[in-house]
Amino acid sequence: MRIESDKNQAETGLEQVGFEQLFDAYYDELQHFIFFKSGDTEVAEDIIQDAFLKLWEIRTTVRVDTARALLYTIAANLFSNRYKRMKLNLKLQLTIVEDRTFETPEFEMEIKEFDQKLQRVLSGLNENNRTVFLMNRIDQMTYNEIAAALKISVKAVEKRMKKALEHIRKEIEQKF
């Protein structure tokens, strides 16, 4: 997944390492990143297209070791410039196959209700806290990686994670 950049590569422009390789490594997590902010697949896909296009335009001045964080910055800016904060309705896919048999219809209902409640709580989270939380949990990015990508401190990542978890737990417990 990750592009390791040794010292020599870090000095060279993007073209040598391969723009495609960069796309392959970071497309998914960037598309997820904007999805976590917007809750909209189409918006996320459009923005990431434009972010990579921008990166291509300035490829001669970009260093490989900074490309990932730069992509995050470009994507976040494109998103905040183009879209007004709206009330979002997160629709993540729950990966239990349709034909799973539940012991009772009541249990199936319970699972589905929990899913809906959790998604509603996630939708209501502060945008920054939600994004960091889902980057860590869904994309398995470490705190260090998140901090580097978003150009914030590891402390700040920890703080956002803590806030997200506290908020989710409190809301879920209240609702049950």
């Binding site: 999805f35 976590f36 697949t41 996320a44 993540l92 896919q93 729950l94 929990f114 949990r137 869904i138």
Partner: peptide, 9 residues
């Protein structure tokens, strides 16, 4: 639940 979530495409 969070671990079972995937981002739609």
């Amino acid at each position: 639940f969070v671990q079972a979530y995937r981002v739609p495409k």
